[in-house]
Write a protein that binds this DNA or RNA. Structure first.
Length: 682
DNA sequence: ACTCCATTAGAA
DNA sequence: TCTAATGGAGTA
């Protein structure tokens, strides 16, 4: 490398491939394309594809990535020099660059926004450290595939992974399945075949479990965990080790979907219904979609696994893109606990004196008592605190109780917000019965007052129902517990925070089922079954006395799906109902949000008008920004929903990107937020 | 933020 | 008819 001359006037172009195509970090839609710069001879060695750069763009120095070196520029005018190569580390691999472009295109977003999600911030000191050792391939005979033999297509899947074939699978884990071990086996099979594996799970606790399982099979040096909780230095250290090819298996959360593994053979998303897999920052990509795009681009296998099944995963099966890996009915029945539903039509409500004292339905009380007597813990799943207020007498502050089973009364948050601000119809948290004509048992008042209920309050109630039994809380304000020992105690957990128990729970009580299903959310039905299955899967099989009591009406299809343990059937029904109402994934949808004028401008744009078969819903007025608050943008006041047949999805995204480009080119000041296939629609 | 270029106002 | 001033577009 020659030294930089004192003045730019003396700079000379690199002898060969002197043009660099650069992705500049400028968040404007009409500038979302590569720009060409001249490579000066003194940067010839360092200016390789993937490095971070500084270039002069529109009069200021901006960051960018070098995408490729070429001989000629298509640009007619004079090229500016690359100002500086920030570091010689080629952080953006060609594969990840192409993936980020594909993700941006899928979501009508900007490449630079996706690059921010994909490449962690630089840490110079870490970059300068010597590289750790390169991983060794695991030995083939260390493979134990017995765990997959309970699924008829399981062994074939592992064979495919070992042979490096790009299998696409949707896997429903059996109740009580050691899912981390199964995924580790899949990763080990891939590694044994000489390729690498990327496994994305919802949260840190899952990362810890899966990392341990992978290290047990592959050895610690080839496995790396990538999560946001590591802190910038450690995160970058591990990420660099991956990029430098020292890692065969990556286990991580959301942003790890972009990890720059070499020679990818397997991509896994576990529990794809968990909303942690949806990125809250623009352009709001979902892990499952990122991995699908990636699997397609590099011809790798994709495994979408979970205890439950999403409508999106089911569509992969229905369309023939993926094969399902499921156990047969007899195996499922043998592995599952007995599930009992109690609701208004079930006639199972508390009648006997003992249950009345315990303030819960006798079936639930019995299930809990039997499990505790057998020396096993009991899991109680309660909704996350905050959204479900509990009710008290406005006069004497005594807890408002159900006249049938003496359970505490509550109103769902949706009913609370509605209309005049008075609480909607109260329901019993235990049996779900409506209580339209409350009268306080203590003072006779008919007025109710709402308080916020948390898991702690529920824990107190249960403590009284099972005197002398220790009560522990996980989530909902309390710390999330990792694991529970095999001893008789009550574990009150919010969804997603249920700790597995050694040897399994003896029983699970799923309270407030009616309230979960009453939430004003498009995905409630799917989400509720996912939460119930997640808790029920931690309970020992029926033959060992395992029982699950769900406090919701057994006439509901979602309750039936739990009773029959039929996530696939439920997902099929969910997909059908989404098709009926025209919602993703049956169609491709985009939410366009912003000021009334801005939304109208986007809807009026030529590209969108030329797009055949696009249906526009709205625009409608919306209240405060329903988004994540991550967008600093202006107050969102209107929203239009656009939908097209799935085959037109790419065209819709392209049209929306063009509309955004037209706006930014015109220096339109009020921003428009576009979300493709949004997880939530306010 | 800065440059480039087109358009236009003003002077010779 | 030429030149300086102004503004809008594009950003290499």
């Amino acid at each position: 490398m020659t030294r930089a001359s004192r003045t730019r006037g003396e700079w000379r172009p690199a002898p060969a491939l002197s043009v660099a195509r650069v992705a500049v970090d400028v968040p404007l839609a009409h500038l979302d394309r590569p720009f060409d710069y001249r490579v000066p001879s003194h940067l010839d060695d360092e200016a390789v594809p993937g490095v971070r750069l500084r270039v002069r763009f529109a009069g200021r120095l901006v960051d960018g990535y070098l995408l490729e070196r070429v001989q000629e520029s298509g640009h007619g005018g004079r090229l500016a020099w690359i100002d500086r190569v920030v570091s010689p580390e080629p952080v953006l691999t060609a594969e990840v660059a192409a993936l980020c472009r594909a993700v941006a295109d899928r979501y009508a977003g900007l490449l630079c926004d996706v690059l921010r999600l994909a490449v962690p911030p630089r840490h110079a000191a870490v970059e300068a450290e010597p590289s750790p050792d390169v991983a060794v391939a695991p030995s083939l005979d260390a493979l134990d595939r017995s765990g997959w033999s309970r699924y008829p297509r399981g062994p074939a899947l592992l064979r495919a992974l070992e042979q490096g074939r790009a299998a696409h699978a949707v896997w429903q884990a059996l109740p009580g399945e050691a899912w981390a071990d199964r995924l580790a086996e899949a990763a080990a099979a891939t590694a044994a075949g000489g390729r690498s594996a990327l496994l994305v799970v919802p949260d840190q606790r899952d990362v810890d479990a899966l990392q341990a399982a992978c290290e047990a099979r592959i050895g610690a040096c080839g496995v790396v965990a990538l999560t946001a909780e590591l802190g910038p230095a450690e995160r970058y250290r591990r990420w660099l080790a991956v990029r430098r090819g020292a890692v065969r298996v990556v286990v991580g959360t959301r942003s790890a979907a972009f990890a720059p593994l070499h020679d990818l053979g397997l991509l896994v998303v576990w529990d794809d219904g968990d909303d942690l897999h949806a990125e809250p920052r623009a352009p709001y990509p979902h892990v499952r979609d990122v991995l699908m795009l990636r699997a397609h681009a590099v011809t790798a296998a994709l495994l979408v696994g979970g205890t439950a099944r999403t409508a999106e995963a089911h569509l992969l099966v229905e369309s023939g893109w993926a094969r399902e890996v499921v156990a047969d009915r007899a195996t499922v029945r043998a592995a599952m606990p007995r599930v009992i539903a109690i609701g208004e039509t079930d006639g199972q409500l508390a009648r006997d004196p003992q249950a009345r004292v315990a303030r819960m339905p006798s079936v639930a009380f019995e299930a809990g008592r039997a499990a505790l007597a057998a020396g096993r813990p009991v899991l109680v799943q309660v909704p996350r605190g905050g959204y479900l207020p509990w009710l008290a007498c406005a006069q004497c502050r005594e807890t408002a109780r159900c006249r049938h089973c003496a359970g505490p009364l509550a109103v769902p948050a949706a009913a609370q917000r509605g209309g005049d601000g008075s609480p909607g119809p109260a329901h019993c948290r235990w049996c779900g019965r409506a209580e339209p004509g409350f009268r306080c048992g203590a003072c006779g008042s008919r007025r109710l007052r709402a308080n916020v209920v948390g898991a702690r309050r529920t824990a107190e109630e249960l403590g009284r129902a099972f005197p002398g039994v220790p009560v522990r809380s996980s989530g909902g304000g309390a710390a999330v517990l990792d694991r529970i020992r095999a001893q008789p105690e009550l574990v009150v957990a919010t969804p997603g925070a249920e700790p597995p128990a050694d040897g399994g729970y003896g029983a699970a009580l799923l309270v407030d089922g009616w309230a979960m299903l009453a939430r004003p959310d498009l995905r409630v039905v799917e989400e509720t079954l996912r939460r119930w299955l997640a808790a029920a899967a931690l309970v020992v099989p029926h033959a060992e006395g395992g029982r699950v009591v769900v406090m919701a009406d057994s006439a509901l299809p979602t309750v039936q799906a739990l009773v029959r343990w039929d996530p696939a059937g439920h997902a099929a029904a969910e997909l059908r109902s989404r098709a009926e109402v025209g919602f993703p994934p049956a169609v491709r949808m985009a939410a366009v949000e912003g000021s009334a004028g801005a939304v109208a401008e986007v809807l009026a744009c030529g590209e969108l008008a030329r797009l055949a078969g696009v249906e526009v819903l709205g625009p409608v007025e919306i209240g405060a920004d329903p988004g994540t608050g991550v967008d600093p943008g202006v107050e969102v006041r209107e929203r239009a929903l656009l939908r097209v047949p799935r085959a037109q999805g790419r065209a819709l995204a392209a049209a929306l990107a063009a509309a955004q480009a037209a706006r930014t080119a015109r220096k339109a000041s009020d921003p428009v937020r576009v979300r493709v296939d949004p997880q939530e629609i306010g």
